[in-house]
Design a binder for these strands. Sequence first.
DNA 1: CGAAAATAGTTTGTATGACAAACTAAAATT
DNA 2: AATTTTAGTTTGTCATACAAACTATTTTCG
Lengths: 144, 144
Amino acid sequence: MQHDPSIPDTGSPLVDHLVQLTYLIQTILLEAGAEHELSFIQIRLLGILRDREPGMQELAHHLNLDKSSVTGLINRAERRDMVERVPSPTDRRSFSVRLTDKGKDIVRTVGDEIERRIHNAARNLTEAERVQLTTLSAKMLYRD
Amino acid sequence: MQHDPSIPDTGSPLVDHLVQLTYLIQTILLEAGAEHELSFIQIRLLGILRDREPGMQELAHHLNLDKSSVTGLINRAERRDMVERVPSPTDRRSFSVRLTDKGKDIVRTVGDEIERRIHNAARNLTEAERVQLTTLSAKMLYRD
DNA sequence: CGAAAATAGTTTGTATGACAAACTAAAATT
DNA sequence: AATTTTAGTTTGTCATACAAACTATTTTCG
């Protein structure tokens, strides 16, 4: 992928750079997950399951997907033994989704790889600049 | 989509924030393109074609896709009258891909919408902070 | 020059990813 | 107890992506 200064050239340097940065990080995530044949959405799924055991509904909300899309996503992840459906003890319609041991392993490995690669991409930043970038990102993420 | 502090929780605040920021911007891009039913990859395609008339090969390289994937992408975009294949005068095997007038319209409209939405997401940043964020992004994008 | 190799792009087959509408089964409401 | 709501799946359709095989040119080079 090219992170070319002139794409997409909207007229606002901030917007251009943020969009390009998004493409860059997305590429990094895909490369980090490639070893385990993880798609972008699967990486997001594993990230969410890292510290949660959500139901399908909740998962659909987190991922901003239709619930029927989540059915397929979880089916494929379950077939690969990365997650499992755990029946709810109180509601026989529902269950929660949980990482298997294999899933946890993958999360760790891929998580380390993501961290390594992103830090490498940020290697030209000083420690102070990294803190700055984190702070500025937070201001966009947790606004109001 | 939730931009929740605890996803994906890799241990590095910089990494976590950048990944979350990526999810946020991706959502913004999709929302900005929704009016015209544009997918993420189509938005990237239009961004690239904004100031280029690449061949299929070149496009595959820019998008980091297999050339056969690009065939499909361009077929669908052509069917929607957003782009056209322009035969090369010197090589009868090849052509370049160009925005149609309709494509240019869409690029303008969606580009404006993206700009509007990203600036809105950055509304808590001062002008100095915006410049900082742009500069820091550039240091990651154009390293070495 | 002419055969062989390389290049540009498409086709074919397969899998994932996404949505909407219709559906099933269980739970909650009234 | 009947009705409505909720949780999740199924079905049908289309977009996205890849790899391998293919077609048609262009290039290389003996």
